[in-house]
């Protein structure tokens, strides 16, 4: 199939066929990162702006490395050093960036819908690197890519997502993505962290963490943020780790071939114990490795592929 999308904004707007094409492309590009000279000229002369209005290490570096391995020039802007702190609006900042003729803008922002807003106002490609609690499509794609790599297919798998679903853009995008690709998704966590009408996204809510884990082929643990204690969402980290964390006793009840995932950064000893994070079924670092290939694939696809890049 032919890639036609200008932007990567959320999982909803991608078809299963497009997601497959992204995987195929990413698997093909993965090998570049294992070469002694980890660089191809594919996007030479293209400019990628990494517009990060929210703190990020892993995602920003992943996008940055992905751009450099394809020979694109990448420029990172962080919130603290941008004009946003001087009161400039998002659309004005974006308009100014656009005036410098970049080819792709990657945006991370704390407000839901900001990537969509940018994409509507700009004629260049926008890739959403996380918008508020809404979507984190590249994370979901690299998660699915990792499972597909390990399990061969996503169809028919049981995926358990455990933790703060309400505040998680990773959970939303993964629920939409995995169900779109034929997997079943169950979520579990404190009732304070399960949003209403989750069934409409395609996920079911398990009665307990144990119930969600018992049938799971894939276990995705979400980071628990300590700040949430202030909003009365959970009592203490201690209680959380006992009742909702992937601890040693829960680890022993998993299916023997269950994959353990986490979008990072980890809170060791809170939502995930070291035995789970470092054990044989953890694919947490594979997720990070695949993240680079996946983002290379997205740059490649939204840039129109090899033909245009080589034309010069």
């Amino acid at each position: 199939m032919q890639w036609t999308k200008k932007d990567i904004l959320d999982i909803e707007s991608l078809s299963a066929e497009e997601i497959e094409l992204i995987f195929e492309t990413a698997f093909g590009l993965k090998e570049i990162s294992r070469r002694p000279i980890k660089k191809v000229p594919t996007l030479r002369g293209k400019t990628v702006v990494l517009f990060f209005m929210e703190p990020s290490t892993r995602t920003r570096i992943s996008f940055d490395i992905a751009a450099k391995r394809l020979s694109a020039d990448s420029i990172a802007i962080a919130a603290a050093s941008s004009s946003i702190v001087k009161g400039e609006t998002l659309l004005d900042t974006a308009g100014n960036l656009r005036a410098m003729n970049p080819d792709i803008i990657v945006i991370r922002h704390s407000y839901a819908g900001s990537a969509h807003m940018l994409a509507r106002s700009l004629d260049i490609s926008v890739i959403n690197a996380g918008d508020g609690m809404h979507a984190h499509p590249t994370q979901a794609l690299l998660d699915m890519m990792t499972v597909r790599e390990k399990k061969g297919s996503l169809s028919g798998l049981n995926v358990a997502i455990i933790g703060d679903i309400t505040h998680s853009r990773v959970a939303r995008s993964n629920i939409l993505g995995f169900t779109k690709m034929g997997a079943r998704v169950q979520v579990a966590g404190p009732a304070t962290m399960i949003p209403p009408a989750l069934e409409e996204l395609g996920a079911s809510v398990a009665k307990s963490v144990d119930e969600a884990l018992s049938e799971a082929d894939v276990v995705m643990m979400l980071r628990i943020q300590k700040e949430r204690q202030r909003n009365f969402l959970f009592p203490t980290q201690r209680e959380y780790s006992i009742h909702f964390g992937l601890n040693a006793s829960r680890l022993s009840m998993l299916k023997p071939d269950a994959l353990i995932m986490h979008p990072g950064p980890l809170n060791r000893g809170v939502e995930i114990c070291p035995e789970a994070a470092d054990g044989p079924f953890s694919v947490i670092l594979d997720q990070v490795t695949n993240g680079v290939a996946l983002r290379m694939a997205l740059y490649y696809l939204v840039s129109g592929g090899m033909r245009d890049a080589d034309a010069d």
Binding site: G113, D131, M133, H134, R172, P195, P196, A197, E200
Partner: peptide
Amino acid sequence: EGAVSTRLGLAG
């Protein structure tokens, strides 16, 4: 707060 806030990731 409802299905739309859940889908859009907006506080309800």
